[in-house]
Every structure is written in structure tokens, then in C-alpha cells.
Design a protein around this nucleic acid. Structure first.
Lengths: 230, 230
DNA sequence: TTTTACTGTTAAACAAGGCTAAATGGAAGT
DNA sequence: ACTTCCATTTAGCCTTGTTTAACAGTAAAA
């Protein structure tokens, strides 16, 4: 399987921040090229296929706005996110006028940057690892979230809406803990006692459906939630 | 060409801000419906085709997060922007986790909001924006709303008025939940018990008509409504 | 160990929905 | 007026989805 990594162009003159972001994004599965100024970034942009650009505004040699304008002349559509220390109204306006997709003021958490990147990518590239694909492979099962079915070779199990929503959340967090309260608030909208017990009942149901394949298991993490391991 | 205005759902309990935004957006060519709390906003959401939702987080009766989750259960894809006074890291994370497209902290300039709306809309394919076409493709069927017919290669099924109206509503909300009460009030003008049972009978009829194509299905969402998936 | 908070599972209860057939009632034809 | 036709509603019965209750088991805490 050749899942091409999402390529990010990062133009940031603060070396500390730049490397930190690059490392973080790498850990999150992105391929990031870091450049210390707009000039270097642009020289690479023309020869590399990027999926998204993250540009600091204030940089030596060539600032972020200028860089963005040059990028826009080459590619009208590529997503651009500005990073900046100042949050002056006019600057934000100018950023968006150039055709920015987002404008983030420092300080920001890397997590927020990641979310903002993903929010843009989910609308941009249709094949982007969206947090909610229509089909999941669960061991020898195929779970169709749209049709709410769970197929395994011969038979097809029709799932109810709640079963489907819960399984979807589990798939979404596969091999990670799905927090009880998060799941409750997402599906039941309220994490009271009764809904919690209701959820337990649904976990039992899902386990029954999935018991044909031993490599798949929904395990409980005491006091935290459930984990779909496979 | 009759370009329909982009419809915005705005949930904001601060009446001053709400009306101000509404006026501003109106001047910019948007059609905005303003609601003072999440409950009212949701009640309208199920019966109106919106293009984007702008939700304040802190609202009486039903807060923005809960509203967003309810909206997401009905429509997984509609863009959501959160407005909030607090910019706590965890809140931003929660907002994006629900599937927000942007998260703006007050105070913000209306101009910035406008740019952010446009940044999102330029990435959103306006496929459902074309209002109520005369013909729908439903799997291998062609549904003609005007002639009230359902064609599939060889044969043509004549639909009755009620059958046609219901199917039209379902098509209008395809892959989203068609709210029971909204459908009843729209077609039967009254959501009493008997009309509800009548509607169930019609759902059965439509399912029979559509059973030639497995890729099409009318699934029930318990207590909420029906969803035409394809 | 004892206690307490969680979790697993089953079954009961109830509401909602699926389906079929019969009843209703209006429109059109005789 | 009577009949036929047909869309729609009502009735009835059965199935399913979801929640609640109840009881047993287990992990953590005291």
C-alpha cells in the first residue's frame, strides 16, 4: 500500500519553534519541510508538490505575505495557514485577502494547529485520512458505517443506529482508549448513570457480533473506557 | 439562473451581537437565521437546509457543543464554526473534536468572521445547494418529482402524491436524517399518532419500490426519523 | 480484608417501527 | 343514485431498538 504522506511546507524563521513543529507533525504522520525564510521556502515550493503551506508572517529576506502571494500565482488552490505573533485586525484581513484558509496567532498549542490542519484537509483532499471513513475493516469483518452493516463472508448483520455509532467511535479510536464520558456525550449527549449502563449493554452486543474473529476484541480499561484492539 | 443565497444558522444568545452579525452578514449577501439558544436553533435546523452553522458555545437551555453534536448526528458534513469568549486550550480541542471547521474567540472583527466563513465555503462543494431539482437519481432509479414517477430501466412506477412527497423529502435530505415530525408537519400538516402510522405505511411502500437496488436503502433512526442512504 | 465503584450479562419492560389487510372516503363513470 | 376505482387512513399484530432493572463478577481503594 502506498499511502503518500501529506506534505507540508513550513516557513518559520524561529528555529526552535520550526523544529518543534516539524517534529510534532512528523510524529503525527506528516512530512514537513522546514525553511527559515520565504525565499528558501519559495525556491522549494516550485519544485515540490505540497498539500498545505504553513507560513510565518514575519521572516527575514521574504515575509509570509509576499511568499503567499507568490505561491498563489503558481497554485490558486493550495491551502495556506498563516502563523503570526501579532493579531492586528488589518493583518488578519490581509492574510485572508491573499487567500488564506486559516490565520493562527501565537502562542497556540501544537494540538490546535494539528486540528486546524485536519479541518482544512478534510475539506480539501477527498482521499485524506478523514477521521470518519465509510468503511472499516475489523478483522475479517467489514463495517459499513453508512448502511450500518457488519459483514463477514457469508452473513450480513444489520446494526441499529446506536450499535453503529458506538462501533464507529471504537473504530475511530482503534487500539486507543475510547473515553467513556466522551462516547456517552457524543452518542447519548449526556453521561449520566443510566446512559452509562445502556452503553455497557451495547458493548456486550458488539462483543457478541464480533466474537467470530478472535483477533478482534473490545477490552475494558477500568474507569477510563473501552479499547477496540486488533 | 437563480442563485440561492447561502443560508447561515446563527446560534447566539447575546442579542446585540446576534443581530449585529445577522445584519452584517445580510449586507454581505447571506441569509441568516438567528436563534437565542441551542434548543431553538436545533428545532429549526431539522427543517431548514443550511449551508453553514455558526454556534456560540455558552448559551442557555442548550449549549453550543451539545447543539453541534446533535447537528452532527443529523448531518456529518455541514461546516460548523464555534464562537466563544474563552480560549482555553481544552475547549478548542473539544470544539475541533466534535468536527468543527473553525473556532473563533471573542472579540473578533466581523470582517474576520466573514473571511473565515468564505475560507470554509470555498472548500465546501455546493452539491446540495441547488434547490429541489425536478429529477433525482436514486441508485439505478430515476425519480421524477413532477411526473411523480420512479423509473428503472424497463418499468415505470407511478407514485401517488403522498408517496412522491415523502420520497422527495427523503431525497432532499439524502444521507442525512429526515426528522419524523418535520416530515409529518410538512406532508400531513399534523404530527399526530395516526399520521405517524400512516407515514410508516408509506415508508414500507417506498422500500418495496426501491428494493431492486441494494445500494439504496431507507434506514430508520430510532425516535428521530428516516435516512435515505445511497 | 473489606469496601466501594465499575463492569458484564441477561432479561424485562416499553416505546417505536414494520407490515398486511381492511376500512374509509372522495372522484369519476355508468 | 349506484358502482367502481384508488389513494389514503386506520386497525391489528408482530418485531425490533432502547432503556432500565437486577444480579453477579472484578478491579481498585481503603
Amino acid at each position: 500500500m502506498t499511502t503518500t504522506k501529506t506534505k507540508i511546507l513550513l516557513a518559520e524563521d524561529d528555529e526552535n519553534l520550526g523544529l518543534l513543529l516539524k517534529e510534532y507533525l512528523k510524529a503525527k504522520g506528516f512530512e514537513t519541510n522546514l525553511f527559515a525564510n520565504g525565499e528558501l521556502a519559495f525556491r522549494d515550493f516550485v519544485k515540490t508538490q505540497y498539500d498545505i503551506c504553513i507560513l510565518d508572517i514575519m521572516m527575514p529576506v521574504k515575509d509570509g505575505y509576499t511568499l503567499a502571494k507568490e505561491i498563489r500565482q503558481i497554485d490558486e488552490d493550495i491551502p495556506i495557514i498563516f502563523l503570526t505573533a501579532k493579531s492586528m485586525k488589518e493583518d488578519v484581513i490581509e492574510g485572508f485577502s491573499i487567500g488564506a484558509d486559516d490565520y493562527i496567532t501565537k502562542p497556540f498549542s501544537m494540538e490546535e494547529l494539528l486540528f486546524r490542519i485536519e479541518a482544512i484537509l478534510k475539506r480539501t483532499s477527498p482521499d485524506f485520512k478523514t477521521p470518519a471513513p465509510e468503511q472499516y475493516k475489523i478483522g475479517k469483518y467489514v463495517f459499513d458505517t453508512k448502511k450500518q452493516t457488519l459483514q463477514t463472508g457469508d452473513k450480513t448483520i444489520r446494526l441499529t443506529t446506536k450499535e453503529s455509532e458506538l462501533l464507529k467511535l471504537l473504530c475511530n479510536h482503534q487500539n486507543k482508549i475510547l473515553d467513556r464520558n466522551f462516547a456517552l456525550k457524543t452518542i447519548w449527549l449526556d453521561d449520566n448513570y443510566f446512559n452509562a449502563r445502556s452503553m455497557d449493554v451495547y458493548i456486550t452486543k458488539l462483543r457478541k457480533y464480533l466474537k467470530e474473529d478472535d483477533s478482534v476484541e473490545i477490552i475494558n480499561v477500568h474507569g477510563k473506557g473501552f479499547k477496540l484492539v486488533m
